[in-house]
Design a binder for these strands. Structure first.
Lengths: 339, 339
DNA sequence: TTGTAGGCGTTATCAT
DNA sequence: ATGATAACGCCTACAA
């Protein structure tokens, strides 16, 4: 049963049937009724294989993230998914397992899938092949957690947030301060947090320099010998800023194992505000980042990149970061959107 | 520039060009070289709009889960994604936000997307519209965490796991024992865990009956008045089995807030073995479920549902659950696969 | 190994 | 305003 058969049974031309089925062009009500009846009776279904696909409207968004195992990104994807569905879009997810080398191929695969656009978080925006590809093809995209001055992206002001943590530490009159961060090369965000943190600490000239511990961020293994000694020595910092919540929990674990009380003796602050940190006792001190909302926002910005329309939506939502946990409340650092 | 032009320039028929471009059918090496040269010189690109899409091989797997915010499911999706990519497949993810009413539409959307198959976790397999739909259309699918006697599914033996927790509690000579679980109606797994748990406890006739606390599983809010009183009374259980790790953490939080020591005074055991539970101090006692591997397995079973071939793959992997954490090691409960 | 011809749904164009 | 026709680009069964 094909469109010609239906046309014959309805006593019209195939073109008329097509117009009826696709609601394109004018149509006599009587004719429409006759055609619809035939379609219903015969159970005719257009042969998708021969349908000219409207590649310009494949209602699917491609998402590329480092890992779904990090709550940060599953929260983002969750937000993307929610807003995408609101617009009738599906979501294809690809994780790169923090492998920069996989990013390019992942983007190629997504483009091949003819997604309408791509939302992505990369290790770094510098010398990024995946990003170059998107730009070269003029493919709609939106960065999350990465920054670009003239392209759609949604991020928090990591520098500012870092300095706010520093403010807290100064207010608590800590004298020995340290930071634990993932390797800067695999996360430009961590570096910004570090810069804002150290810069602000310079206000107090009596402080010795900040102890920096760079670790392989996503290994859930314990700290190695060298790192441990930095945490355990008698002159170790009494306040640690960790570049993400997982590191913070790892550090808290390490300290507690050594009998050190957190937060009574040593302060530890994380970054992300993952939900799990708040069902612990005591709750993890952290910078709350609205990852879910960032996901929502990314979808709006992506669409905006094609047809300017979602700007107002982004404005309506109250995107902010704020301190929660055992240390203190603190002024929110604003999440900036570049449009 | 169309295929006919290329054919003319290469001095062959359009069919030959098509065969060359799609690697279908035999082809003379000389002819191939000539055609490829013409394609290169003219920069010819097939007109996608007229390409007959091979809907039978849309290399995409649809995944429907309750929520990406639960680490259990993001781990599963991560595994699915990994194995899918290994086979050159992409993954479309839909979460239902634990809304049973959204399941049917989610499946319809996935089928409309012409995914090759669907991997899903439902609230319950009883009277399930989404499942009926898949069966009706004879659509390839694989259940995760749900059970079916004659359809592809991957799950752990919740009954057995529950009884193993009971064994541990008996070995530790607890006399007052309780269980905290999400509403059974929204998780048939939780009910199985409960049944196995209580059944095993009957071995010790001196025990009073198990205190059951049913809660709204996914609310991250504290326990209400009624529930709290069950945890805090002087005759409250000294050992609690929670139907998942999030509940366990919530309970530990509650107890610690009240000054109760865990695990010294009260034992709490969770279920899932989410990675985060193990970077806490002390680590959360739990039943480890290999969610990532279950994701891998689900992909194999899905493919197996179409072309019997992946069975051996599933066998090679060492799917097991085992105890980790502060309570004890314990015999593994086997994860069973139905093929 | 290669060519021929027929088939698909959409849409531009033409005819009422 | 409404309906008919033909061309479009590709794939593929079948013939040579």
């Amino acid at each position: 049963m094909n469109i010609k058969d239906v046309a014959a049974l309805a006593g019209v031309s195939p073109a008329t049937v097509s117009r009826c089925l696709n609601n394109t062009g004018p149509l006599n009500e009587v004719t429409r009724a006759r055609i619809e009846k035939v379609v219903e009776l015969t159970g005719y279904d257009v042969n998708q294989a021969f349908k000219q696909v409207d590649w310009n409207h494949n209602p699917t968004i491609g998402v590329m993230i480092p890992s779904l195992l990090n709550p940060v990104f599953s929260e983002i994807v969750s937000g993307i998914q929610k807003r995408a569905r609101h617009f009738g879009y599906s979501v294809i997810v690809v994780d790169t397992q923090y492998e920069r080398s996989l990013e390019k191929q992942a983007i190629i695969d997504l483009i091949r899938q003819r997604v309408a656009g791509v939302i992505l978080t990369t290790a770094s925006v510098e010398d990024n092949e995946a990003l170059s590809l998107l730009r070269e093809f003029n493919f709609p995209f939106c960065l999350v957690h990465n920054q670009s001055s003239d392209e759609p992206c949604v991020y928090v002001d990591n520098y500012q947030a870092g300095s706010e943590v520093a403010e807290q530490f100064l207010a608590l009159e800590h004298k020995r301060i340290g930071m634990v961060a993932g390797r800067f090369q695999s996360s430009d965000r961590a570096k910004q947090r570090y810069l804002g943190f150290t810069e602000c600490l310079k206000k107090d000239s009596s402080l010795s320099s900040v102890q920096l511990v760079e670790v392989d961020q996503y290994a859930l293994t314990p700290f190695d010998q060298t790192q441990s000694s930095l945490f355990d020595s008698s002159s170790a910092p009494t306040a640690w800023f960790c570049s993400n919540d997982l590191l913070a929990l790892k550090l808290v674990n390490h300290l507690k194992t050594k009998g050190v009380l957190v937060p009574e003796t040593v302060s530890v602050v994380g970054f992300d505000g993952m939900a799990l940190g708040q069902i612990l006792y005591p709750p993890l001190a952290t910078i709350q980042v609205p990852h879910h909302d960032m996901g929502l926002c990314a979808v709006d910005l992506l669409f905006n990149a094609k047809h300017k329309s979602a700007l107002s939506l982004a404005r309506k939502l109250d995107y902010q970061t704020h301190f929660v946990g055992t240390v203190a409340e603190c002024q929110p650092s604003i999440m900036r959107n570049v449009l």
